[in-house]
């Protein structure tokens, strides 16, 4: 499969990628608890240096200019969640991305849960 940087329309719904996930990540893995599926990822635009990245890394940075979850990054780019976790944590370490994912505390916060309740009740 030819990989074109910045092509977000690409999906691998019909056939599996010929590129194995460990090749994209250099064999690295990241624990799920470090980067939950719902963690919000947003690109740091400070110097636009992410534009120098290539392939999947650039796709991710380009996609995350508005905050988006790890799961949405994976689904949109047709990558496995595990692959996205590794690439996102690498881009985060390099300063290209910010990651926000404090859901463990938020999901036990009565005030936040009350807001969720109000938000759900507003759905018709």
């Amino acid at each position: 499969m030819t990989r074109v940087a910045g092509d977000h329309e690409r999906k691998s719904e019909t056939r599996p990628s010929a590129v194995r996930p460990f090749l994209l990540t250099g064999g690295r893995v990241v624990a799920a608890t470090d980067l939950p599926l719902e963690a919000q990822v947003v690109t740091r635009e400070i110097d636009g240096s992410w534009r120098q990245l290539s392939f999947e890394r650039r796709d991710i940075a380009s996609l995350c200019r508005a905050p988006i979850s790890v799961a949405e990054v994976a689904a949109t780019l047709g990558l496995q969640v595990g692959t996205v976790r590794v690439l996102v944590s690498e881009l985060h370490a390099a300063g290209h991305l910010a990651v926000h994912g404090a859901s463990t505390e938020a999901s036990r916060d009565p005030q936040i849960l009350e807001r969720v309740l109000r938000g759900l009740r507003a759905i018709s």
Binding site: E38, Q40, V42, P67, H100, A102, S103
Partner: peptide, 9 residues
């Protein structure tokens, strides 16, 4: 832009 707090069910 502020980043939303993500929750999941």
């Amino acid at each position: 832009m502020s980043t939303p707090v993500p929750l999941k069910i």
